[in-house]
Structures are given as structure tokens and as C-alpha cells.
Simulated assay, not measured.
Amino acid sequence: MNDVRIVSSTPSFSTRTERRHALAKADFVDAAYAVIEQHGFKGFTLDLVASHVGLRKQAIYHYFPSKEAVLFEVALAELTRSAQAVADAVDKVESGVDAIEALLRTYFHAFAGKIRLFQISHTALPFFDFKRMMSGDNLVRIRPLNDLLYAGAAQRLHADSKGTLSLADARRLAFVAYTSVVGLLTMKALVESADDPLVHQDTAMIDTLVSVFRNSIAQGNKKK
């Protein structure tokens, strides 16, 4: 009789433990979202996070080494969500100029109604030990987002130019578009946090920014 190895379909103990660990971390991150939405960055505490999941603060340290580590996971989730939204929007257009518009509009609308989360993911993190947070594994997790944000638009701009615009220059243009919309959102977050909102409507501001880039690209194409 041949020996038959029976492979159990039941997950191993280590696999189940890892799964429970991941689910517990996700619960804490979800709770952190809720605290930020309710209390903002200044009111964020691990005590509030723990209370949302019905545990004591000490339980959080079993999964995260610090308050900053929890905030990093929230920031990374928001950055990933917005970067993927940009990539999906760019995939739906063909031209480079339309891709830049898709980048600008999608990123703006991803955060225009979530200013507190924008502050955490873009403007608040540097107030912590930013160098430590952006080193090692965390930096490895963030870097792939660059391609989601810039690669699609850069490839379309490069293709439209028929070789007159290098891929590196096209990617730089996409990066400048990204930093421009981040700047607009930063100003919006700044004045809204001071209860002094901008007099300009969101639609008018993003339309103007899109127009600036479309006109600039059109002028650049005429010179070639």
C-alpha cells in the first residue's frame, strides 16, 4: 500500500494567530479613524482608541509600539486609498492632459470632504518622529504609491509627445501636479482648522488648477 499524506485543510495555529493579530490591528485602526473624525488630530489619544474597541490602552501596545505607529497606519491607509483612486481614474483616459486632470480632480475630491484625515496623512505626521517613522519597512510600504500616483499620467504625456518629452520629464510634470493639489488641500485644511474657510468654492478652485495645467501643457505642445 502506498503511503498517503493527508493534508489538513484546517489553518495552522500560527496562521490562525497571524489572522487574529491582523484583525485586531485592523480594529484598532478603524477605531483610530473614528477618533480622528470625532475629535481631530489634537484630540486623538490611545485611550479613546481603546475605548472604541472596549479594551484598555495597554492592549494597543501589544500590536503597536506607539501612538505614532497607529497614526502611521491611518495615514498609509488614506494615502493608499487616494493613490489607487488616482490610478483607476487615469486608467480611464487616453491623453496625457486628461490624465493630469484626472490626477488633480481625483486627489482633490478624495480629501476635500476628509480634511481631518488629510491633516493626519499630509501635515501632522512631521510633528512626530518623522525620520523614524519613514525608515525601514514603513518607507518600503509607501514607495509603491508613487507609481500609482504618477506612472499612468507620465506614460500618457510621454506617448503624446512622440518622444519630445522624456519619461523622466513627464513624471516630473505629474509630480508637480500632485504637489500643487496637495498645496491647495493644505491651504484648505489650514483655514478650515481656524474656522475661517476660503471664500472660493471647491469647484472653482480645482477648475482653476486644472485649467492652469491644461493651458501649460497646450503651450508646451505648441513650442515643439
Rank of each mutant, 00 (worst) to 15 (best):
K162E: 13
P126G: 06
A174W: 05
A110K: 08
L173G: 01
L157E: 07
D91P: 00
D98K: 08
G113C: 03
V176T: 02
L157M: 12
S166E: 03
F130I: 15
A159F: 10
S161K: 06
V97M: 00
L104R: 04
L104C: 05
K131M: 09
I115Y: 05
F127P: 00
R172Q: 12
L139N: 10
D129Q: 04
S95R: 15
N146F: 11
M133Q: 13
D169C: 01
A153H: 04
L145W: 00
S166C: 10
D160W: 10
P126A: 11
K92M: 15
K131C: 08
L165T: 09
V176M: 05
Y107F: 12
L117H: 15
T179K: 08
L125S: 08
I115K: 11
R172E: 14
F118M: 10
F175M: 14
G136W: 13
R156N: 02
R81V: 03
I142R: 05
N138S: 14
D160F: 12
A159M: 10
Q84P: 02
A110W: 13
I100A: 05
V140W: 06
L104P: 02
F130Q: 02
D88H: 04
G136N: 11
A99N: 04
L139Q: 02
Q119S: 09
I120S: 00
V86A: 10
F118I: 06
R171N: 03
S121G: 02
H122M: 09
